[in-house]
Nucleic acid binder design. Structure first.
Length: 489
RNA sequence: CGGGAUGUAGCGUAGUACGGUUAUCGCGCCUGGUUUGGGACCAGGAGGUCGUAGGUUCGAAUCCUAUCAUCCCGACCA
């Protein structure tokens, strides 16, 4: 097997190769849809279980709504469907028939009167139910979450970053006050930030989308953006304050304590399998994937090096108790004694897969009472005495977790550049230099012109970065604060 | 939807200008043996309706027509 394409030679080729070679996913015969393989799906399951626990702990409940949505529901919220109309899959028939021999055709007599839309997101079908479930202030808040797949008919797709079908989590909440709904949207943004930074080691920037970039149907879209190694921005999560748009469209009112009828306030929010793309592009290097220990399906791999059965027996006398001990404290270990692959082959294989720690044990080690321990993030090789090993392993795992966050954080800060002239802006954006932090006059016209001329968009109006007055780099008009421009995935 | 290109084994490919034995090579796969501390080696083996359909011809991967699919560039993209 040959080496991976290097990142600085062809970043997107490197990205595609790493997914195939690490056995995370592959393209399917269905255009724009991918097959997520066990190793990749395990990463998704880890992310899912971490977030799911936090959501449950903070009072959210999981539900499941149908995949298919009657077309008529969509027409109730015009702004919302406008954003999705061009990428909806429609079910118009429900039966096949055998034409001649093996030629299967659609049975035209099975045409549906009210066609069904494969969900691009579930606001409409969920709000149709909220109408029946919400009558009183006592019914609120409703904090529902759904783990599901959705379809958006994308013209151009990339594994994990933009696929026609993807897996996600969509939260849909209903509240009695505007303030509570806004707080909910912000709270979710913080939960996402926590999962990203503390578990996936991906440093992020919290912000608000401009009108042109916000979710169709939302009053305000909060978002999380992250910068990838190549200097392009990736939208990682969104949390929408929907105002009363859906409650008005679906006529969802509740009786207040005083007996008045009020429309309820809403939020929706989601993260998707796109996060797997973010992990790859945040942490990995030219040797392959680098996974944060907290979400790695396998945290440690042990590779025996042996010539005879007697040697293998000696090795296993050490390996089995160690494996048992570490598994007991919640560490996932793989012991790979396959004889038909050489140790050298395995070293490369597990490097591509990004397994945080590799332990090699051979006759030499047994004689010396040590094993060889290699960290995936630094590729640093150490010999550690067998006695100390079981206590040091958890420490090394947490060091790796900290270190890759630190590296990513440093890169993010280097990519964050203040720019005060349009000339400099154009020059930097040509080189994909990351987030350009520049003054903007707040108008959609300026935003569009900059986009047309430079291909850069306003990724967000940051929440936590300093605010000061200035002049718009494009129009020279007054600007209240700097915003983040970047090229994005 | 506009412009360009490509379809040959699981993957990557040679062969196509100018039609002519049994369609080339590498990786991977299977069997046996030797190996095993950074992608081992030797020997043998399996695997193809050359995207699909039609046409021209004594003869088509190669020429013609249609069709399908994919990729790239653009447009579009909460």
């Amino acid at each position: 097997m040959k080496k991976l394409t290097k990142r600085n030679e062809n970043y997107s080729k490197w990205y595609n190769e790493i997914i195939l070679r690490a056995n995370i996913a592959e393209k399917s015969d269905v255009r724009g849809c991918m097959i997520i393989k066990p190793y990749g799906f395990y990463i998704w399951e880890k992310i899912k279980s971490i977030l799911d626990n936090i959501l449950k702990y903070t009072g959210h409940e999981n539900v499941y709504f149908p995949l298919l949505i009657p077309k008529s529901y969509f027409s109730k919220e015009y702004n919302h469907i406008k954003g999705f109309a061009k990428e909806c899959a429609i079910i118009s028939h429900y039966r096949l028939k055998n034409y001649k021999n093996k030629n299967i055709i659609v049975d035209k007599s099975s045409k549906l009167e009210d066609e069904l839309i494969v969900r691009p997101t579930s606001e409409t079908i969920i709000w149709n139910s909220y109408k029946r479930w919400i009558n009183s202030y006592r019914d609120l808040p409703i904090l529902f979450n759904q783990w599901a797949n959705i379809i958006r008919w994308e013209r151009r797709t990339r594994l994990f970053l933009r696929t026609s079908e993807f897996l996600w989590q969509e939260g849909h909440t209903a509240h009695s006050t505007k303030k509570e709904a806004i707080n909910q949207a912000k709270k979710i943004l913080n939960i996402y930030t926590n999962v990203l930074e503390n578990f996936m080691a991906i440093p992020v920037i919290q912000g608000i989308k401009t009108d042109s970039e916000k979710f169709a149907g939302a009053e305000k879209t909060y978002c999380i953006e992250s910068i990838m190694q190549d200097g392009k921005s990736l939208q990682i999560a969104t949390s929408h304050f929907l105002g009363q748009n859906f409650s008005k469209a679906f006529d969802v009112r509740y009786s207040t304590e005083k007996g008045n009828k009020e429309y309820v306030w809403a939020t929706s929010w989601g993260i998707s399998t796109r996060l797997i793309g973010a992990i790859i592009m945040t942490h990995s290097d030219d040797n392959g994937l680098i996974l944060p220990p907290k979400i790695a399906p396998i945290q440690i791999v042990i590779i025996p090096v042996y010539k005879t059965q007697e040697q293998l027996n000696l090795i296993e006398k050490l390996v089995f108790p160690l494996k048992k001990f570490l598994e007991k404290i919640g560490i996932n270990i793989k012991y790979d004694k396959r004889i038909y692959y050489t140790p050298g082959w395995k070293f490369n294989e597990y490097e591509i897969k990004g397994i945080p720690i590799r332990i090699t044990i051979g006759k030499k080690d047994i004689d010396r009472g040590t094993v060889e321990v290699v960290r995936r993030d630094t590729l640093e090789k150490k010999y550690i005495s067998i006695n100390k090993l079981k206590f040091l392993i958890p420490k090394i795992l947490s060091k790796i977790q900290d270190n890759i966050l630190k590296v990513a954080l440093k890169r993010k800060n280097n990519f964050l550049i203040e720019v005060d002239s349009y000339e400099e802006f154009i020059e930097k954006i040509k080189k994909n230099s990351g987030f350009l932090f520049a003054h903007w006059d707040g108008s959609s016209e300026t935003e569009t012109k900059i986009k047309v001329e430079t291909n850069a968009t306003i990724r967000c109006i940051p929440i936590n970065l300093k605010k000061n007055m200035g002049k718009c780099i494009f129009s020279k008009n007054l600007s209240k604060q700097r915003v983040l421009f970047a090229k994005s995935y």
